[in-house]
Design a protein around this nucleic acid. Sequence first.
DNA 1: GCGCGTTACTAACGCGAGTTAGTGAGCCCG
DNA 2: CGGGCTCACTAACTCGCGTTAGTAACGCGC
Lengths: 348, 348
Amino acid sequence: MTLRRRRATSADVAARAGVSRTTVSFVLNARTDTGIPPETWRRIEEAARELGYHPHGAARALAGGASLTIGFVLRQSSEQVAADALLAETLWGIASEARTAGYRVLVEPLSPDGGRYSELLHSERVDGLIVSGPRVDDEELAALVADGFPIIVQGSLPDVPVPSVDIDNRAGARTAVEHLLELGHRRIACITNAPLAYTAAADRLAGYREALAAAGIAFDTALVAEGAFDAASGHAAMTSLLVGADPITAVFVASDMVAFGALRALREAGRRVPADVSVVGFDDIPLARHFDPPLTTIRLPANALGAAAGRALVDRLAGRPTRERTLLPTELIVRESTAGCSKSSGGP
Amino acid sequence: MTLRRRRATSADVAARAGVSRTTVSFVLNARTDTGIPPETWRRIEEAARELGYHPHGAARALAGGASLTIGFVLRQSSEQVAADALLAETLWGIASEARTAGYRVLVEPLSPDGGRYSELLHSERVDGLIVSGPRVDDEELAALVADGFPIIVQGSLPDVPVPSVDIDNRAGARTAVEHLLELGHRRIACITNAPLAYTAAADRLAGYREALAAAGIAFDTALVAEGAFDAASGHAAMTSLLVGADPITAVFVASDMVAFGALRALREAGRRVPADVSVVGFDDIPLARHFDPPLTTIRLPANALGAAAGRALVDRLAGRPTRERTLLPTELIVRESTAGCSKSSGGP
DNA sequence: GCGCGTTACTAACGCGAGTTAGTGAGCCCG
DNA sequence: CGGGCTCACTAACTCGCGTTAGTAACGCGC
């Protein structure tokens, strides 16, 4: 291990350029209103480059009053995180957006019942937070919001007055079901992605109902089954839906993971997809295109979601006005799990 | 937005407890060698609690010379990150381990061709780095290592003298193939998880060869096909393996994602799994247990991997000796994609 | 009653930058 | 020739905390 030479400080740069530290600070922070002549400017930049100068983060944070760091809080259990196929991509989106504004991202896993936000915020290690998937009853979060801390929720939290960024679950679900309707389906079931206590699940179900209503089809609770995150729940839900006397011709499954189980249940019941039953998923996880058959689904723009959350927080930190709620559009990806309805619903 | 009152500083705590700032610092940093009487100790702790005091991170970093932050560098493209089903879990492992030592985790996405490490390290925003998936030709990384910066590589980087943490790919692959051998299989193919330029792919193939060699079976290049991360590559590889005259009875696919495509190819070729062909995967992604049939695979302990990397870096930062290379064991998870070989290889 | 050792603290410096108030030099104008 | 103005900078303070060196008070032995 070679001996590392001491870091260069702004004083070193000043000495080398033959000016004071203040002037160095002005130049390196691009303060153009200070009337530094181009020649001096150049000399300082050159000295900084030659010395390999990088401002000390902590010193800058202490003096400047901003850590230039944003916190990404995962308000989920370890298992939920592990099962979230799109989390890494979201994180990427946050980080790249943050970086264009000079921020870095600190990740803080916080089990729903476990740790606290306060240390992170009060220690000023982060200038603001993006909180992913908080529960409705997250009191500490509500308190921090009330205290005026810069916080953006990724997801939705109806009762707390905090800016949030989410995808348009309802419109996405509606698009999915409209696709099925356009193909001529009328008996369309729905398997939720999670218990309805989760707002995303409730919203997707609402989108399903909206589409049906717009098409003049009565909502039938017998056609709705509850999934819960994983494929096993989708298998069970689909199986229960198949016992009905009047068979369905299509299903909207509000999660690709759950849809994977549903597809299997259909196969086991001898129903072909899409010949007998069409299936639309939601999320567009990386494997969805490789399902058997490749899954028609609603793409959740994970990267863009992260980027939007990052931008919202950065805007807020810069004092720019922030929208109370940002909803990102989803996109229908048509693959091979959907087809026209063969059984016309009792023709002439 | 309520007006936030000014943060409490250690001076406030000192004033409230009727002592000096120094004494406060001693108590809150639990310096037991300073002979502070219990009564004073208690008074200070109480004052801190009442004021809701949290030490200022930047100030502490500046004075103490350590940021108490570690960087997690993703040396991968955005697409690779999105496709990595286990990344979030690994991150969780790093973060929880880091936290027990008082560290936080800063995530730095760095496309292979894109950004640089230097700013992060030289600005002392992090005390050390965990680098995930660097290329062999990562010159900047090699330079930083040579400069003596505290770095842990997650994965392997044979030519650079840097401590690394990885799973035992070779042993895992060997276990997978041994499982097939114990079931009586003799014609066992292998589909790699990635091109062999990736050390993980080469190691897993080596494990496959070792197991065969130990069983006295000759290695046959015709039984090896190259996968590349996704299911499509597995489908292609499997299809190519099926054209052989002497049919295989088992495949070791060095990635669950790739195995997913392989399973599909088998189904399309009319080969039943496991009746006609047994399949063992690698990684144990969350969906693997829901494959059709549920996939026998080698579990990659993602959380433990992150934790081990975190611990290694924390140890290094604390000046404790660090192992040059840590290899985590994998575990065979037997599900339903493997079964005994029906075709005895030419009995008596 | 002086020296010595504890005990229980505190004063003051330093970390590395941002920032405010100010200063000397040069020039113009009257 | 002096007052005022711009130009090009700088001295010095600040952020909040860790830490070193030091000190005042007290007890104890001789």
